[in-house]
Design a binder for these strands. Structure first.
Length: 258
DNA sequence: GCGACAG
DNA sequence: ATCTTGTCGC
């Protein structure tokens, strides 16, 4: 049984985010990048509802790597009907049920969880990365592939993109909470645009549960050796796509009249 | 009122 | 996210 249920609508989903975020824990010293332990990537793949009546599906994967050498230690997947529509800012309700199921099926402790999406760089400072952390108690960081309107809008000092070299990064600002439209409010840094490969588009890193921005960035840097995205994310992405493909193969097109 | 908007 | 052809580079 899931420790939570799906909200009836967007308004209820937002209320729940505001209630849950009180439990978000701040940065704490954890194993540094590469230290003995595990690091887990989670990701989700979708199948649109078929015009023939096939249900919308969501497939999640959790892939555990040895934090020291990034070799795979364990993995699990979960497939189910999409429980919530895609609404920017409310992704957690669409993706987390399946992710929680996959994480629960692992045989080893996940360690640090690397999410595909945002953490505190979110309209209400509670992206799916924070949500997952609060629900599970695990340390989480968010690494997104594209900018989020609320996250990268330079509200304060003009802010350009990060430098061209691997490791270069630039702050992601968000309006200070509680003062919408207040030009005097000091924008706060909610994440980093991090260049993980020379001359390649940056990724967007933000803190989740029990991990600060600096540590989130350090871990992301460590996990991106030869590619733009963390090895955890790449593995999880492949795994959930495969799981989705297998699920579709077993659920043929429904036949009329039976 | 319209646009923008993680995955 | 997913749908898709061709193309550039190691």
């Amino acid at each position: 049984m899931p420790a939570h249920t799906t909200p009836a609508d967007a308004a209820e989903a937002v209320e729940r985010q505001l209630a849950l975020r009180r439990f978000l824990l701040p940065d704490e010293p954890g194993p540094p990048p590469g230290a003995p332990g595990t690091v887990t990537g989670v990701d989700v793949a979708y199948a649109e509802p078929g015009a023939d009546g096939a249900p919308g599906l969501v497939a999640a994967a959790a892939v555990v790597l040895d934090a020291a050498d990034l070799t795979e230690v364990d993995r699990a997947v979960a497939v189910g009907a999409a429980p919530f529509p895609y609404v920017p800012g409310l992704l957690a309700y669409r993706e987390l049920p399946a992710v929680l199921e996959a994480l629960a099926a692992l045989d080893v402790p996940p360690g640090l969880v690397v999410c595909d999406g945002y953490g505190v760089a979110h309209p209400r400072r509670f992206g799916l990365t924070c949500h997952l952390g609060v629900l599970t108690g695990l340390r989480t960081i968010g690494v997104a592939k594209t900018p989020f309107r609320m996250a990268d809008t330079p509200v304060g000092p003009p802010q350009g993109p990060p430098g061209p070299e691997r490791g270069d990064h630039a702050p992601l600002y968000a309006p200070a909470p509680g003062s919408p439209g207040d030009a005097d409010a000091t924008p706060e840094v909610v994440g980093s645009a991090l260049r993980t490969r020379r001359g390649v588009k940056p990724v967007y890193v933000s803190a989740g549960h029990r991990v600060g921005l600096a540590a989130a960035r350090a871990h992301t840097f460590h996990l991106t050796r030869g590619f733009r995205l963390p090895e955890t994310t790449r593995r999880a992405d492949r795994a959930c796509r495969d799981a989705l493909a297998r699920a579709r193969a077993e659920l043929p097109t429904p036949r009329r009249g039976g």
